[in-house]
Amino acid sequence: MKSNAIKKFFSKTEGYILLIVIVYCIIVAAVNPNFMTPGNFLDLIRSSSWYWILGFGVLLVLLSGGIDVSYTAIAICSGYVSACVIQRTGIENLAFAFFIAILIGLWFGAINGFLIHYFRLPTLIATLGTKTIFIGIMAALVGVEAINTDHLPAVFKDFGLAKLFTVPTETGAEYGLSVFFIPLVILGILTWFILYRTQIGRSVVALGNSEVSAERAGYNLFKTRMFIYMYVGALAAVAGVIAISDVAWIAPLSSTMIRGTELTIIAALIIGGVKLTGGEGTVFASIIGLLLVRLFETTLIFLGLTSSWQNFFTGLVFVASLSVTSLQRARKRRRMLLFEE
């Protein structure tokens, strides 16, 4: 019974991606023993926390059958505006920072949801547009000047340095579990709760399964869409504040921080086993998919490789993972002599 459950788990995409993660870790550790240290993994959690938080939001969008590419712009805008507000008002309070950021995230998300519902826009097109609109609003109303470490409000810098516990290493440096872990866990559980324990969460999955069926079942799809995109907006805002606190610095236009990661995160989720066409996907799949991609991103120097290899690996796993699932499905369907979708 138990071995059966394990077998079932590993036959799913999440399962074999977990296997790949483990194998990859062993390879890296074999090449460079420095990799297998607690400090390293604690650091991976720290630097990946905002990827995961963004991933939870993207999971909802993908589940609903949509693709959002504007959420990274929301993260930058809300984080940057929040930093500016605190810098200029002097209210050095973390809760206030999150409040401002989430407020903006919710608003931008609401714009997405509204456009997508009322104008029946394809989600990708709508968010491609709003992505630049959001940056534009920020540039016009707040500005785009970089805030360097010295000028960044202390509340961000302190938040970035705070740790739940620390582990000293023999060299005297201390690695620790960042407080980012707290919002990460809370939001992970919250996302899971919404998806599996609330009606609105089920309506998201239902929408991704079949829009017509969801409508006939009596779901209020306007509510569902607004919820999805506002939730993504709020999560993006949290991720934005965390990312800024992490590097203690923000240049909203010139830096690649957050910006440009939107497709990487979507790809990572799909690698993990979330279906691009909607309806299927779990919180665990998004965590494991992003973990693998983050491992590729952060272990190159351990392996002594240049950054082009990261793209190569991510692409390879992406294509391989999609090909394998698609091939399995096609074979199964072919065996059943089904030729239509």
Binding site: N34, D43, T171, A173, W249, I258, I301, F302
Partner: peptide
């Protein structure tokens, strides 16, 4: 690092991890 703080940050992090000494 392409003069980019995000890339620089990741690189420095990896340098420290790969070369603890």
């Amino acid at each position: 690092d392409q003069d980019d703080a995000a890339i620089a940050y990741d690189i420095c992090k990896e340098i420290l991890r790969a070369h603890p000494d």
